[in-house]
Each structure stands twice: as structure tokens, then as C-alpha cells.
């Protein structure tokens, strides 16, 4: 690994002061890995772990604030999360392994990089890692790559599970930097690759994610996180679906849906959510919803299977949510 200097500020404003050619370190489960692979080459690493961003708090308006430095494991186990946002807890538990979730933080999860194999190999052309070099995945081995939101420049998926639930939940991200504080809708936080695939999200240089805020929302038992992958555990999603339905007797009042594994960012289509509103659940309705969610999908050499798999996973997830039988992340049979 290349040498770098290290600092550990205790106040936010000291963090971004030092930012040039630097990277922030949270749990390190992605950054350290990428530094070992020589994909990330910071001169300076700014360890965020002494900043006061490690609390889960209820806000006066009923929202729940998840500090950026709270670990994924602690978030998934927090009583207010398991009670009010079991969809989020489920998505977190579907990702990585217990050891990784013990270190990985909420802020780091949002800012993790793609798992595209070519991105990880500095000898290969990759516009995301080395702008302007081309995209080895296009026409290459691209079974795991995205089918939605791709561009000529990049077809990589955004790999997080947690973020799929956060998109479904319509969370908000709060940021702080030298230009002050701001908050953005979670669904607008990640960027489509377009012709600037190296820019994964809207974070400005030096800006820090301080928290993720969850709206006051309840689905009762009408939610699910369904993740299909190459092995039953400890693998990234090929297709995943987060669904939360607000139901009254048999009628869907409001639907919250996001897809993982298929998009260059957590994938949401408001028109698809609107399709479900005011309707009673049925397979044909779910088929139409899946079609709407996947509209515009483009496959490449090896990933056409995602387009056949995705509608099935979406329909199954919608049925699970409607039936109030959320997918267990321990018992893997799919009901």
C-alpha cells in the first residue's frame, strides 16, 4: 500500500480543512480494501471516528436520525429501527457479514464504491476509476452489471443493500462542509453515471455525510427486502427489491419501492409506485408495476438474465409485502 499521513479531528470543521487529496475513513471496510488494490491513492487519510456523529436520535417531528458513524450492525439492532423500520433492518442484515457490519458505518455505506471487477483492477480501462480510459465492462464480462441508468461511459451497479431500503423509505441525507449544512432527498443523493461516472453522488469535495433521517412512516407487516444472489449469504445482490406498502384493509394507500443490483444507483420509479395506489393487490397489477419499474432497461453481453429475473423478484416481493409475510434474512426459503 502507498504511504499516507493520518489525522483524527474531533470537530467537523477541522475535518474538511485538511481535505486536499485526502479521503475520509469511517469503518474502513471499503476504503482500506480499495487502498490495498491501489484504486484509492490518498496522500492523507482523515479518520472521522472521533466526530460526534455516532447517535441514533428521535427528532421532535417524529423522524429518526441515524448518525453517519453508527455502525450498520448497531443500526439494524437498534430498538427504534427494528420496531419502526424493520425494512431497513432487514436490508442491512441481508448485506455483507456480521464482522463487516460491525465496522461498516451508515455514512460509509452510502459512499461505498461499485464492485465492478474492472474498477478494482488498475490495469484495466475504467472511466469510473481513471476518467477517459474507457469502460472494460461494456462488451466484457458483465453478468453483474447494471441494466438501468447506464451510460456509454459506465454500466456499474451501486452495490449497497441498505441504500435500497433508504431509497424506498424516502430518507433524507444531511451533509456538512465548508459551505455550510444542507440536506438532500436520499433518492437524489446518488448520481447516474452519464459522462462523469467517477462522480458517484452529489457530495462536494470535503463534504461529510452527518446523518440519514428517516421519515415517520409505518407499513405494519407490509414490507419486505428480497435479495437474490449467487449464494445464499455473504454475496452482493444480482437483483434485490425493497417494498413497503401502506395498506388499509385490502387497499394499497401508498407504495414505496426501490430496486438494487440492477441500477447504477438505488432504482426508484415514482410512476410505478403510483400505479399501486388505491388498488387491491393482484398478480396482474404487480406484473404491470414490474414492467413500469424496468422500463428502459438495456442489457449488454452477459447480463440479460437480470432482465428475466427482475420481474419475478419484483412480483414476489410485492406479494410478500401485500401478504404481510416479509422475507426472513435467516430462513432463506422464499414464500
Amino acid at each position: 500500500m502507498r504511504q499516507f499521513s493520518y489525522s483524527r479531528p474531533t470537530a467537523l470543521s477541522d475535518a474538511w480543512d485538511d481535505f486536499e487529496h485526502a479521503r475520509y475513513l469511517a469503518g474502513g471496510t471499503n476504503l482500506v480494501d480499495l487502498m490495498k488494490s491501489d484504486v484509492e491513492r490518498p496522500n492523507h487519510v482523515i479518520d472521522l471516528n472521533s466526530l460526534p456523529l455516532n447517535k441514533v436520535e428521535e427528532l421532535p417531528d417524529g423522524r429518526l436520525r441515524l448518525g453517519a458513524l453508527v455502525t450498520n450492525a448497531d443500526t439494524a439492532a437498534h430498538p427504534l429501527v427494528t420496531e419502526r423500520y424493520p425494512l431497513l433492518a432487514s436490508a442491512i442484515l441481508a448485506g455483507a457479514s456480521p464482522q463487516i457490519r460491525n465496522r461498516a458505518t451508515n455514512g460509509g455505506n452510502l459512499n461505498q464504491r461499485t464492485r465492478c471487477h474492472y474498477f478494482y483492477d488498475p490495469d484495466m480501462a475504467c472511466n469510473k476509476r481513471s476518467p477517459g480510459t474507457g469502460c472494460s465492462a461494456k462488451g466484457g464480462r458483465n453478468r453483474i452489471m447494471a441494466i438501468l441508468g447506464t451510460s456509454e461511459a459506465c454500466i456499474a451497479t451501486f452495490p449497497s443493500d441498505m441504500c435500497v431500503a433508504l431509497a424506498a423509505l424516502n430518507a433524507t441525507v444531511t451533509l456538512a462542509g465548508s459551505q455550510g449544512e444542507r440536506s438532500v432527498a436520499f433518492r437524489d443523493y446518488h448520481r447516474l453515471p452519464g459522462d462523469q461516472p467517477w462522480q458517484d453522488n452529489i457530495l462536494l469535495p470535503g463534504e461529510i455525510v452527518t446523518s440519514i433521517d428517516l421519515p415517520a412512516l409505518s407499513f405494519g407487516p407490509h414490507y419486505t427486502y428480497l435479495k437474490i444472489r449467487d449464494r445464499l449469504s455473504f454475496a452482493f445482490a444480482i437483483v434485490s427489491v425493497a417494498v413497503g406498502l401502506q395498506m388499509e384493509s385490502d387497499v394499497i394507500q401508498k407504495a414505496h419501492i426501490a430496486l438494487g443490483g440492477v441500477g447504477t444507483k438505488p432504482w426508484c420509479v415514482p410512476e410505478a409506485e403510483a400505479l399501486l395506489e388505491g388498488k387491491t393487490p393482484s398478480l396482474s397489477l404487480f406484473r404491470d408495476t414490474a414492467e413500469c419499474l424496468l422500463r428502459g432497461a438495456v442489457t449488454d453481453r452477459d447480463n440479460a438474465a437480470k432482465l428475466r429475473l427482475a420481474p419475478r423478484v419484483i412480483m414476489r416481493a410485492l406479494s410478500q409485502a401485500a401478504d404481510g409475510t416479509p422475507q426472513s434474512q435467516t430462513y432463506k426459503s422464499i414464500s
Binding site: 469503518g27 474502513g28 487519510v45 479518520d47 456480521p98 464482522q99 463487516i100 465496522r103
Partner: peptide, 19 residues
């Protein structure tokens, strides 16, 4: 490389010792 850090299991290959 799993070890316990403050009682929690973690992967020691992804942690800088100074951190």
C-alpha cells in the same frame, strides 16, 4: 483474520491499527 475488538468480531485485515 477475525479477532475481537472491544468484544465485537471484526476483520483485522481491513482496520488500520492506529485507527
Amino acid at each position: 483474520c477475525t479477532v475481537l475488538v472491544d468484544g465485537k468480531r471484526v476483520k483485522s485485515c481491513l482496520i488500520f491499527a492506529v485507527s
